[in-house]
Amino acid sequence: MRTITEVSERIVETPSTVTLRFRYAPSALPGQFVMIWLPGDDELPMSLSYTGESKGVTIKAMGATTRAALSIPAGAPVGIRGPYGNHFDLTPKRILLVGGGSGTAVLAPAAEAAARSGGSVVSALGATTAAELLFLDRARGFSETVEVATDDGSRGHHGFVTDVSQRLLSEREFDAVWTCGPEVMMRKVIAAAEPRHVPVFCSMERQMKCALGMCDACALGPYHVCTDGPVFPAPQLAALPEFGRTKRDSSGRKVPL
């Protein structure tokens, strides 16, 4: 069943990203996702960017529905079901967070929980340009150090966030890496962490319909992202030929990422 709730607050995070906050009572853990229905339009799987009773999702304009979602006003009704899927294991104490673009949305609540329970977080955030850096202020709140990279060099390192995370991995010791962003980026994060034996956990995105482990829309190798994920330990992903290369469209056909 869905709960119809109202958008309590709409926050413009970047020119292409908006956070919608709403009251939704069921408890959720960082890393889990909800299905959010925009009545009259689509229903989307969205990782929670806020997991308390006042929850939130942070939506980036990608397709027609996400573009429309950006203009949803406070007070608008939305349908929520979930939360679904697994979550980040919060036991590691020294965390490296690597967020690419809107991928930081799902990492932020996990990092906040880790910091609250005495962990230390170092964050590497990447974006196309300075204005698109998501949750920079929020990251300063939960991180010991925040480093940024932009494709155009408008802020921080001029280049890939993986250049930054690779350097951080060589300079410091970490118990775990949490990452979300383009799969090519996550592949590079895994490649850099593997020789140092730092476990990497990736939050994955795929087309979803049922979110209940039934319809097969989010099939990823032998896994279903909705029930086996969305958080995957790197060894589960590294062996998959589709990781970083293909996804399935709504028909189930394999298409390039």
Partner: peptide
């Protein structure tokens, strides 16, 4: 032919 199916919501659950 490949067929995308309907847009979501495609599912409603009852406990």
């Amino acid at each position: 032919e490949p067929r995308l199916g309907y847009p979501n919501p495609t599912i409603e659950t009852y406990d």
